[in-house]
Computed example of a mutant assay.
Amino acid sequence: MSVEEVLVRLVNDLGAFALIALGYRAVFKHFAAAWARSVVLGIMFGMGALWAILNSAEVRPGVFVDARCVMIALAGPFGGPVSTVLAAALASLYRLWLGGAGAYTGTANIIVTAIIGIVSAHALGIERNVLSRRHLAWLGLASSAGFLTIFALPSEIAWPIFKATFIPVLIANALGVLLLGQFLGRERRSLDRQHELEVEAFVDPLTKLPNRRMLERVVAPMIQRTQDGHGALSVLVIDIDHFKQVNDRYGHDAGDVVLQQVAQIVRRNIRSQDAVARFGGEELIVAMPSTEAAAASAMADRIREIIARETGRNLGVTVSIGVAADRGKQATFKRLFKAADEALYFAKQNGRNQIALAAG
């Protein structure tokens, strides 16, 4: 096969890789769990490598030349170690299944490139949105190092193949990683920015807790389950006692620190199925699905005691907590919040640093 034919095959590979790369954003959109994204991205990059092997140029019986390593190299910075291992495993198994004189050297090429991709992603800091053309160009050139495994073949086979195809493969790998890497990098930066905007919209910047808007979203299915007869829903309204005095005496910076500490204590001491949010000012809300009033009151009192012990050492900070629980068709978040807020007012009026359970 001529050098021109090899070049045509390599260019076709890069075109197919571009189509596969278009699915990168869709993976992040449809798979929220990190492990699921890693698996799907590994399959995606692996399928790109498989396509390259299917479309490869057979330069000697059983010896194939293609741009598979572009996909394997990019799996490291844009998919992570799990994706790289999965993509390399898919490509290696297929190459071994094809067999031929170059089966083992071709598989070694894939493995070497996978290691280069993982190491480069870590060493050069090109993971996520820390990208540069220089880094990608370096990775593209480095990904061709695996081609040297061809010298495991007898020299009378390896040398002619190397001299005829190494430069085209080097160019294809360098350009492929550079161009596709820039595209994937833009997609990743866009995704990261979108995530930042979502965080800004739904997370309180001071306490890092969800805000009121996010809490209402999270509580909606809890309310639905409660209305469907799956136990009671309890709500805690937590308010820092004499918070204005803390700000006046020690300054707003100290007040911010106290609010952050209280928020983290509450977060640490609720269950994984519970939801906590900053509702405004120094007020925090906890929603506890499938929880009766007695259990919610016990949890509230435990939180109150921990805050008084851990935060009150230096500033004497305490909290008051209102508790309300409801079940059945009449349960709504508005109704629960109003009842818990009224119970909180009762706790404040009767000395603070205590919990109060809403009537009924």
Rank of each mutant, 00 (worst) to 15 (best):
I223Y: 06
H30C: 11
T149F: 01
A308T: 02
M288T: 02
G125P: 09
V262H: 00
M44A: 15
V317L: 07
F162G: 02
A293W: 01
L180R: 12
L22H: 09
G125W: 12
I72V: 14
S132M: 11
R188Q: 08
N55S: 12
V130K: 14
A158P: 08
M214I: 04
R134L: 14
A57W: 02
P81W: 10
S120L: 06
S132K: 05
P205E: 12
I157Q: 01
A142R: 08
G140D: 11
F64N: 07
E58Q: 10
W159P: 01
G351M: 08
A32Y: 09
D301T: 11
D192P: 04
I306R: 10
T113C: 11
R309M: 08
S155F: 11
R225T: 13
S120V: 09
A343Y: 13
S143E: 09
F337S: 02
A298G: 10
L357C: 08
V65E: 02
V119H: 06
V3D: 01
G231N: 10
V317I: 05
V70P: 02
E282T: 08
I171M: 10
A164C: 02
E4F: 09
A356K: 06
A220V: 12
K244H: 12
I157H: 01
G23W: 12
R267T: 02
A158I: 05
V237A: 05
F183W: 15
S92G: 08
S272G: 06
F333I: 15
L344E: 07
Q182E: 15
F147I: 09
I20E: 05
L74M: 13
F64T: 06
V262R: 00
N350M: 14
R128V: 06
T311C: 00
A103H: 00
L170K: 12
N129W: 03
F78K: 09
D274E: 03
E5S: 04
A88I: 00
F333P: 13
Q349P: 12
V39R: 10
G100E: 00
A16G: 10
A232W: 07
H242Q: 11
A254S: 13
G62P: 07
I265G: 01
I270M: 04
N314R: 14
Q224E: 15
R186W: 13
G251S: 11
E127C: 04
A232H: 07
S155N: 03
R68D: 03
S143A: 15
E58D: 06
A325E: 05
R186A: 15
Q194E: 14
A73H: 09
K329C: 11
A331S: 15
P81Q: 03
G322F: 07
V65P: 00
L14V: 02
I53V: 12
Q349N: 14
R278Q: 14
M288A: 05
L233S: 05
E200A: 03
V119F: 14
K348G: 14
P154W: 00
V3R: 03
W159I: 05
A340R: 03
I115Q: 00
D66A: 03
T311R: 01
K334G: 04
G328H: 07
